[in-house]
Nucleic acid binder design. Structure first.
Length: 420
RNA sequence: GUGGGCGUAGCUCAGCUGGUAGAGCACUCGGUUGUGGUCCGAGAUGUCGCGGGUUCGAGCCCCGUCGUUCACCCCA
């Protein structure tokens, strides 16, 4: 029996795992610089939390959750998204009791039992933030700006931002009535009609030309916004302009999670296939209350690390230089090996990255592997060096070697590498 | 969940109308004393995804299954 990973999971192993880690760190950096605090959360929760929070009618809850019974007959579900679990933790630990907004971020694996596809995995990785407790439109703009900064940090250029407002409860109810009326007089097939029944907005997202053109005349939610929602949305746009963030208003944008209200946005990459959304989010003004917390508003986003990596590869902007080592030591013989271990240990303690060529190999093969690993310097430690107390420090890019006494090796390397 | 493509060495793939497997890259060793990136030589590596069927004989045909990929759907 040869074991394989479960169907549809994304796995990262060298050399690509480096790129993955780099992408994730790029996305995380602007979040951390904006004062968001880490939430390290469980990957599974009470099933009911998701059915309530995400919405019982959504596809995510209906057909995409990994749900099972644990040994205590509790219904458990692997988290399909991050917001609901984050808010559960906020409520449970009273993290919203201090000054507001309370700002959090998370990073980790999420699970949806979908049919795998390019950019769509059953276990995927997201980075997200949540800002709880203010409906100031300026924070909407900041949240969007943070996501944008993450993508730009990677070096992505070929993506665009779509925003809309889903309004408040009243706006949506009024729109829904008119939209249903409109859809009722269209001639649609069974499956499409059923979809429209569950969420009429879905039809805006249909990819078939006949549906698209039929929906052109459909009433759009933006025209139904209450005065409050409208001024909020206008303020968000004003701030985005101040921040020089390009966006397009897409009144037909559809989100798959029920909790979204008001400002809603999506980052779409132009070089990806059907799964082109690299990040998205929005306000969820009723959600805290819905899952048992106080009536606080909130906004957040989730960014797809897997897809951001795919996008980075598509644009050819993956940066790997940051991962190259500084030094490789090639020891010859047992005594040299002990010394190599000591030197490596000492250098690492002062932040020099050091590898040792293990395995009693020849100098030639040690050099080869050092070359392949892209290390900056190489030093051979054999009997000669042990006796003379000096070794050749060879710079791989130029091939030049300078003699260094072993006792001064550590300070010498630190100066040449850090330039201090 | 629905539909199409694909599944041969670590990787990318070749294998003609069925006769029990090959290339390039990568890997290991060597090209005289302990120094890489080029070149040359040698070597190792596969239950041809898995199970069944047809056949004297299947990597090639048929069925199933698993995985993968693309699209629908959905979304990160």
């Amino acid at each position: 029996m040869r074991y394989q990973a479960p169907k549809g999971v994304s796995e990262y192993y060298p050399p690509r795992s480096r790129s993955f880690e780099w992408v994730r760190q790029c996305l995380l950096a602007p979040i951390q610089r904006a004062g968001y605090q880490l939430l390290e959360l469980p990957v599974f929760e009470d099933t009911e939390l998701f059915t309530r929070g995400v919405g019982a009618s959504t596809d995510v809850v209906n057909k995409e959750m990994y749900t099972f019974e644990d040994r205590g007959s509790r219904s458990i579900t692997l988290r399909p998204e991050g917001t609901v679990g984050a808010l559960r933790s906020v409520i449970e630990h009273g993290l919203d009791k201090g000054s507001l907004p309370a700002k959090f971020y998370y990073s980790g694996a999420f699970f949806r039992a979908e049919r795998p596809q390019a950019g769509r995995y059953r276990q995927f990785y997201s980075v997200g933030i949540e800002a709880v407790g203010t409906d100031d439109p300026a924070i909407d703009a900041e949240v969007i700006a943070i996501a944008d900064a993450g993508f730009r940090n990677i070096g992505l250029k070929q993506f665009h931002l779509e925003i809309t407002s889903l309004g408040d409860r009243e706006s949506r109810a009024a729109h829904r009535i008119d939209l249903k009326k409109f859809i009722a007089q269209l001639s649609l097939d069974e499956a499409t009609r059923n979809r429209a029944e569950i969420n009429p907005l879905r039809l805006f997202d249909d990819k078939r030309e006949e549906v698209r053109s039929a929906m052109k005349a459909a009433p759009v939610l933006l025209d139904y916004l209450s005065h409050e929602s409208k001024t909020h949305f206008e303020a968000v746009q004003k701030y985005l302009k101040v921040l020089n963030i390009d966006y397009v208003v897409n009144p037909r944008m559809v989100r798959g999670l029920d909790y979204y209200t008001g400002t809603t946005f999506e980052f779409v990459h132009d070089l990806l296939g059907a799964q082109s959304g690299i990040g998205g989010g929005g306000r969820y003004d009723g959600l805290m209350e819905e899952i048992g917390g106080s009536a606080l508003t909130g906004i957040g986003f989730g960014l797809g690390v897997d897809r951001a990596l795919l996008a980075a590869e598509a644009e050819g902007v993956v940066d790997q230089s940051a991962f190259l080592g500084d030094l490789c030591i090639i020891p010859l013989g047992d005594e040299a090996k002990s010394l190599a271990l000591q030197i490596a240990h000492e250098l690492r303690s002062v932040s020099v990255s050091v590898e040792i060529a293990f395995g009693d190999r020849s100098v030639k093969s040690g050099m080869k592997s050092a070359d392949k690993s892209g290390v900056k310097y190489v030093i051979v430690l054999g009997e000669e060096e042990l006796q003379s107390g000096a070794a050749e420090l060879k710079e791989m890019s130029t091939g030049e070697a300078t003699s260094v006494t072993l006792s001064s090796l550590v300070p010498t390397l630190v100066t040449t590498l850090t330039g201090k």
